[in-house]
Amino acid sequence: MLDNSRRIDRLPNNAGVGYKPQHFDDLRADPGPVKWIEIHAENYMGAGGRPLAQMRVLSERFAVSVHGVGLSIGGETPLDPDHLARLKHLVEWLNPASFSEHLAWSTHDGQFLNDLLPLPYTNETLAQVANHIDQVQTTLNRQMLLENPSSYLSFAQSTWSETGFLNELVRRTGCGLLLDVNNVFVSATNLGLSADGYIDAFPLHAVGEIHVGGHDEDTDDHGAPLLIDSHGKPVDDPVWALLDKTLAKTGLRPVLVEWDNDVPDWTTLRSEADRAAQALALVA
């Protein structure tokens, strides 16, 4: 049984890391500046075994953020009731400090595509996404954070800017936002927009968590830079700079380093967390 009485009920304004099972021993022996961890909800929806046992231990000591990657909140079809029930079960069991999901879709007609796919920003999709957020917040009986996506393209039919769309979702649903500054940098580069302008237009009052992560560099058909949100390498310098600018505006926030592919050893990941902690120290 999980002891819920000692749970921390909000993410601390410190550095956190995306948790990987191979770091279980190192994280506990040498957490460095890491005060909280984030897990992908779907990896902890098994019935038992090591993943849940590790979480029983870690949640005694670290605040936990549950980050869903499979709910398909931006989908044009209804949310999967089975998946929502599994999520409710996990959140009730773990009582995490935060639950977040993505402004994206991944399931359509019962097929799960295992990627965060983009949607057009229209009045119609706004109403769909707001309904889905309402449904999630009602089911989980808590506020959720919604993360801005990384974009490689845009839709001709969009009538809202992404920041305007997110702002309106906050207004309609009362959800909070997870601001991924790497995604901002990736999208701005890919779509020829200003990352600073995006941050200026972002509803920063609603930000409950910030992400940084690594990206890869490619080019499109015309030789223009095309950044890929790969989470497979260290955070790039322009993204750290964008984090500094963002924190100067938001004040202290929980900052997470995401590294999901080609996961490095603990020392390397911890040094990224050190850098996030330094950025937070500049604000304090």
Partner: peptide
Amino acid sequence: PPDLQDGAGAPAGRRFSVYRNNV
């Protein structure tokens, strides 16, 4: 799909391949 475009309104082309490849 023809409604997908780059930041300047040109067809998305191989930008769509990022998603194809990711999946």
